[in-house]
Design a binder for these strands. Structure first.
Length: 708
DNA sequence: GGAGAGGGCGTTTTT
DNA sequence: CGCCCTCTCC
């Protein structure tokens, strides 16, 4: 079969596909056929004689790489078996797993997920006797956050506190001690967290030339997608594996960088030509996804950015409806109106459910909508938010699996013992130590008093001796675990049992337990493929990256939610929120609706609070959207002409937002009541938006502030 | 050292 | 409301 590259691609795409030798940087605007370019390049490489196993494709999710490989296979009409594709983390895992000795873990290692890390941090904190009885002491999740941030950004904990959480700077000595203890604990117990995968991988490559040369020899062509969201160590890894003359294609879009919180560094894109000498830079600017009215809006969002992007996407799809701006009276009515809109799109305009997506800033924002969808019986599939494998019962079961592979996995062991009555943390710890040192005497004495403990330990031994395939192992585990499940969740154990069945389904595709466990912790939700068919999509904006739909609905576009209040600790964060909205809007092909509820119900104090429209919405000129308002009598009314911000009473409390010209200069201030705060932005000529720890974001008149 | 009651507190984003 | 942490009593 021959592929008509020239005809299927535009000139810029064609150039990127044909440029196979030497480094290329493809700056690909949203919807500009980035995936298509990668897919055709894969096909072209193989067609011109490159063996599939000489290609390495690093993407942001496993799903993305599978999709690209599949598409390349279908246009090629042959298999790409052997091509290495996946995330940096999963690739690192694959290599480290067969080279565990180089890490000093001769008996292998265990991958930690986020809750594992938090638990270790907590344990370290307790052993160091830090924060005892201090209610305001940073919580384990905060501590873990800071530790992982310091690693991802490659900064000291002091620097991270300074930048991300200045109100915690007083804890920097503690945090340093905890970080050190955390590291030691991992080393002692052969544990690797997400960050270790990357850093250990780098270390192994630097210390073992044989391993490095082997990789370099094998991977002659490397492609890295979403390059704007790589962090520094990932960039170094690419360089390392590619070697001096590497054939690397990096694809990215600086305007879509949304992972700075995790250490992603846009500078990687800018520095790429410096790192790889002779880099060919190619820009893809024609948008094939969206209609012009949608692009007008997304271009405007970028226009407001403090740092300008040289980007004006264009399309030939001039027709299409203007994006809607809908203003419900509350988040409750927002949920109902979204449902109405979905029904309308589906029934009257013929969009299949899986061609419609609802996007939001944080996982819990969709809860009211999920209830409303349930009421009318629309099925949906949710991306982002809680992870399947982190649900308590799933995690319980996975810990048994971990013990099969590594009986000394302390975290797993302690967790498995948890449901035994009369065995708390201390006793569990002693049992663990007794097992490790072979202290039969203690084991005998403790098990004599507790028959169910004895039973469980015996079950574990049998399990370890007899487990074969992942499926077989899981069946045995479920048999052991089910009594505990029923005990622990008397109300909803049937539902959780169904979850275990789902897990059992997943095991069928694996032949070894290690890769089953690793895939689960590295790929998050695995079940999606099966349930995907024709369901409405709910997704966080982050998880929507790289995807597209005919109709996109974005909800909760109000201050504190989008932009997220938690995210605004420094001026750069505000810009990232803006790019996040840009990513969200550019997912839409034809229909785009932005929802701005006037009030939101607050579950923990039971009150309904008025909102202020998101600054990004207030910035939009009226002619770009079609405005729909809910009247107090119910129902939506179309509003002609005037911009959204003009009608909003919020206008008085929150004058139109302007990013400061030099946000970096803003610094700190002091307020009589709120104390020290960080200035996020200048608003108008005499007001500031300030983040006060413990009080949140406030807009304060300059006269009341003492600048520091 | 463990279990259970009571109180404070607060929901970002992900590999 | 639900989680997590602390306190109290066994």
């Amino acid at each position: 079969m021959s592929i008509d590259f020239k005809n299927d691609l535009n000139p810029a795409q064609y150039e990127a596909v044909m440029h196979t030798d030497g480094p290329v940087l493809v700056i690909a605007g949203a919807g500009s056929g980035k995936t298509r370019t990668i897919v055709y390049r894969l096909a072209h490489l193989v067609q011109s004689g490159v063996r599939p196993d000489q290609i390495l494709l690093l993407t942001f999710t496993r799903k993305a790489s599978l999709e690209m490989l599949n598409r390349a296979e279908s246009i090629l009409g042959r298999s790409l078996q052997g091509t290495s594709g996946g995330t940096f983390h999963s690739f690192a895992y694959k290599i480290l797993r067969v080279n565990a000795h180089a890490l000093g873990f001769d008996k292998g290692f265990t991958l930690m997920d986020r809750p594992d890390s938090e638990n270790v941090v907590k344990e370290v904190k307790e052993t160091l006797e830090l924060g005892k009885g201090d209610r305001s002491y940073p919580k384990k999740s905060t501590l873990t956050d800071m530790i992982t941030k310091s690693r991802n950004k490659e900064l000291s904990v002091e620097q991270v506190l300074e930048q991300e959480a200045f109100h915690l700077t007083g804890y920097s000595d503690d945090l340093r001690a905890i970080a050190t203890g955390y590291k030691q604990f991992k080393h002692q117990h052969a544990l690797l967290d997400y960050d270790d995968l990357l850093f250990s991988f780098e270390r192994v490559l630097l210390e073992n030339p044989d391993i490095l040369l082997n990789l370099r020899g094998r991977y002659r062509y490397i492609m890295v997608d979403e390059y704007q969201d790589t962090n520094r160590v990932q960039a170094r890894l690419v360089k390392l594996i590619a070697g001096e003359t590497g054939n690397v294609m990096a694809v990215g879009d600086d305007a879509q960088s949304i992972y700075a919180f995790r250490g992603a560094n846009v500078a990687n894109i800018l520095d790429y030509p410096k790192i790889f000498e002779g880099t060919k830079i190619i820009r893809l600017e024609q948008n094939y996804r969206s209609t012009q009215p949608i692009l007008d809006l997304t271009n405007t969002i970028l226009d407001g950015a403090a740092q300008k992007f040289e980007k004006k996407l264009f399309t030939v799809k001039n027709d299409g409806p203007r994006p809607r701006l809908v203003q419900p009276l509350s988040d409750q009515s927002q949920a109902n109106q979204v449902v109405d809109l979905i029904l309308d799109l589906h029934r009257s305009r013929g969009y299949a459910y899986h061609e419609i997506a609802v996007l939001f800033r944080a996982g819990y924002h969709s809860y009211p909508l999920e209830v409303a969808l349930g009421r009318v019986g629309i099925e949906y599939q949710k991306y982002g938010g809680l992870r399947f494998h982190e649900a308590a019962h799933i995690k319980d079961v996975l810990c048994y699996m971990r013990l099969i592979r590594n009986p000394t996995d302390k975290l797993a062991f302690l967790r498995v013992l948890e449901p035994i009555k009369g065995v708390g943390p201390k006793t569990a710890e002693r049992i663990y130590r007794a097992k490790a040192t072979g202290d039969e005497k203690y084991l005998k004495s403790i098990t004599r008093k507790k028959p169910d403990l004895q039973q469980l330990l015996a079950d574990l031994d049998v399990l370890r001796a007899s487990a074969t395939t992942p499926m077989n192992a899981l069946e045995q585990v479920i048999a052991i675990y089910t009594p505990f499940l029923m005990l622990k969740y008397p109300d909803d154990y049937p539902k959780r049992q169904a979850g275990l069945e789902q897990l059992a389904q997943i095991t069928t595709t694996y032949t070894d337990i290690d890769s089953f466990l690793a895939d689960l912790t590295l790929n998050g939700n695995e079940e999606e493929e099966k349930t995907r068919d024709n369901k409405l999509v709910l997704s966080t904006v982050h998880s929507s990256k790289g995807l597209e739909w005919n109709a996109v609905i974005i909800i909760d576009l109000v201050e504190d939610r989008f932009p997220s209040r938690k995210a605004l600790t420094k001026p750069d964060d505000f810009e990232e929120e803006r790019r996040l909205l840009y990513v969200a809007c550019t997912r839409a092909r034809r229909e785009l609706a932005l929802f701005v509820p006037a009030s939101i119900y607050n579950r923990y104090n039971g009150s309904t609070e008025n909102t202020v429209p998101s600054p990004f919405v207030r910035e939009l000129p009226a002619h770009l959207t079609e405005i729909w308002q809910e009247s107090y009598a119910g129902g939506l009314r179309k509003k002609e002409g005037a911009p959204a911000a003009r009608q909003s009473e919020a206008d008085q409390d929150a004058p139109s937002f302007k990013s400061s010209k030099d946000p970096k200069k803003l610094g700190y201030c002091r307020h009589k009541i709120f104390g020290k705060g960080k200035i996020i932005a200048e608003i108008g000529s005499d007001k500031y938006r300030v983040n006060f720890p413990g009080f949140g974001l406030k807009v304060i008149v300059a006269d009341y502030l003492e600048l520091l």
